[in-house]
Design a protein around this nucleic acid. Sequence first.
DNA 1: TATAATTACTTACATAAAGTAACTAACTAA
DNA 2: TTAGTTAGTTACTTTATGTAAGTAATTATA
Lengths: 111, 111
Amino acid sequence: MDTTIICPRFEKAMSMLSQRWTGLVIYQLLTGPKRFCTLESSMGISGRVLSERLKDLETQGIVKREVYPETPVRIEYSLTDKGLALEPLMKEIEKWSQDWIEVEEKSESEQ
Amino acid sequence: MDTTIICPRFEKAMSMLSQRWTGLVIYQLLTGPKRFCTLESSMGISGRVLSERLKDLETQGIVKREVYPETPVRIEYSLTDKGLALEPLMKEIEKWSQDWIEVEEKSESEQ
DNA sequence: TATAATTACTTACATAAAGTAACTAACTAA
DNA sequence: TTAGTTAGTTACTTTATGTAAGTAATTATA
């Protein structure tokens, strides 16, 4: 059979990136550290899933979480080196999307 | 509020790529046209979802489907130009995964 | 002639993942 | 005392995916 063996590293990276929201969270963090509520409202992700994703990304060493004991408490999420290393990849998605994706705009009547 | 507006093209591309299996299907097709059963068995995706993904990718103009009326019938899936344009992105995922992903190998005892 | 095999799916049903909305904890401000 | 803020968590619903069997068209085999 013509079965290609897929590199397990690639497969692991891909399964990480193909979880819903993961890519967008990283993309947002490329512009600097962000708070929970900022991420939540800027991408329309639910708090439940955002919390889950940030935990996963922290476990994988892609995101770090820092607590500033102000009032009210400020918690910032930012990218580690491993996370920052995803920038070229994100740039490629930007490029491809600009070259190939069309945005169908809604006409006023169907809004 | 410090809400970044995300480019709708980028968001569309990302939501496509962050569907389970989509990336791997494209990756497999970068090595040449493939049949349904080959994709199915080489990546461990279920037939139900593979069928769904191939239809979506065809609709989006990323994959094309060609029928060869042999016996038994041969149907080949391959990338369009839009799909082939994803190669640099896939290369970046490969690079990143090689630099940053560790594969934990199972010791014989815990197999 | 009947049975099995092949490919490319589809269908019905079960489980897992994600969305929704309300709730908690710790604190401050009115 | 009530309300507001941030960063979550919890219980419940909806959606997505997995599983396994079924279909249709054709050929090969017993």
